[in-house]
């Protein structure tokens, strides 16, 4: 890796690692994940299933929150506070800046998710669930989803304000959660042109449901290794496409 890219990545990571908000969110993620024990006491049914279900949901929620906020904030701040001037006036290309930022954010998310994941993994074992490898796979899939989210927030924050970036990123995230139901809708689209248009959108928008294997983990049903592999490739392709688009946008950006 070019030293400049590494320098930017490390500094990006350092910025989140020195932010109190980051620790607070990680802390709440862990707190909520552990309080799934409480929920499992209070609900009827298989306590272990409830524990996994609510615990994973909590970690998912807080990781997505961290991803969106750091993704938007860290790039926007560089531009708004003009610290980016300082980087881009060095022999660093716009491309390297974006790649460095992305890697730094990816490292930040790895740390956040890693901390929550390890604690929860042990917590499940201690609570009598054994070392459930499916949980590890769940976290791996979640990480891929988080990479897509930070790539999306990076794209938006490279050309628009944090508020718009936030709205766009959250919208895309929510669309990404439900878009798999598209085929149900498509049946009702009578006009062929309209159908073709939505079809294109369907393939362009992120299908984040691919990464959600919670029901298999909770129910203990088998995971399809091919589906997992495909999801991995999908994430890779999607992130690369987003980064390429971000770089194209960022290359033309002026720093006034």
């Amino acid at each position: 890796m070019k030293p400049a890219v590494k320098g930017i990545a490390v500094n990006t990571f350092r910025e989140s690692a020195r932010n109190k908000m980051f620790y607070l969110l990680v802390f709440f993620g862990i707190l909520f994940a552990l309080s799934s024990k409480l929920v499992s006491f209070l609900t009827l049914g298989d306590a272990m299933k409830v524990l996994k279900d609510t615990g994973l949901a909590a970690i998912n929620f807080f990781c997505v929150l961290i991803a969106i906020f750091t993704g938007i904030n860290l790039v926007y701040k560089e531009i708004e506070k003009k610290t980016a001037y300082n980087i881009l006036s060095k022999p660093v290309s716009r491309d390297e800046f974006i790649i460095g930022k992305f890697l730094g954010l990816a490292l930040t998310m790895l740390t956040a998710l890693g901390a929550m994941a390890v604690i929860f993994f042990v917590f499940v074992a201690v609570s009598g669930g054994g070392f459930d490898l499916k949980i590890a796979v769940y976290f791996l899939m979640l990480y891929l989803e988080l990479l897509i989210i930070i790539a999306i927030s990076l794209l938006f924050s490279s050309f628009t304000t944090p508020i718009l970036s936030f709205i766009f990123t959250v919208s895309l995230y929510l669309i990404g959660q439900i878009i798999w139901t598209y085929n149900e809708f498509a049946k009702y689209l009578a006009i062929p042109l309209w159908r073709a248009f939505t079809q294109v959108l369907y393939y362009l928008l992120p299908n984040l449901n691919k990464f959600n294997i919670k029901s298999q983990v909770v129910m203990g049903t088998a995971l399809d290794p091919w589906a997992l592999l495909f999801s991995g490739l999908y994430a890779l392709g999607y992130v690369l496409a987003l980064l390429a688009l971000t770089i194209l946008v960022f290359r033309r950006r002026e720093f006034q």
Binding site: P3, K6, V10, N11, R18, K82, T83, N86, P91
Partner: peptide, 21 residues
């Protein structure tokens, strides 16, 4: 100029240097 306020002067200079080869 405005530089990262979470860094120390020394860290900042090392970061700046890392952008050159």
């Amino acid at each position: 100029p405005y530089f990262y306020d979470y860094l120390t002067a020394r860290e900042f200079l090392f970061f700046s240097a890392s952008l050159f080869n």
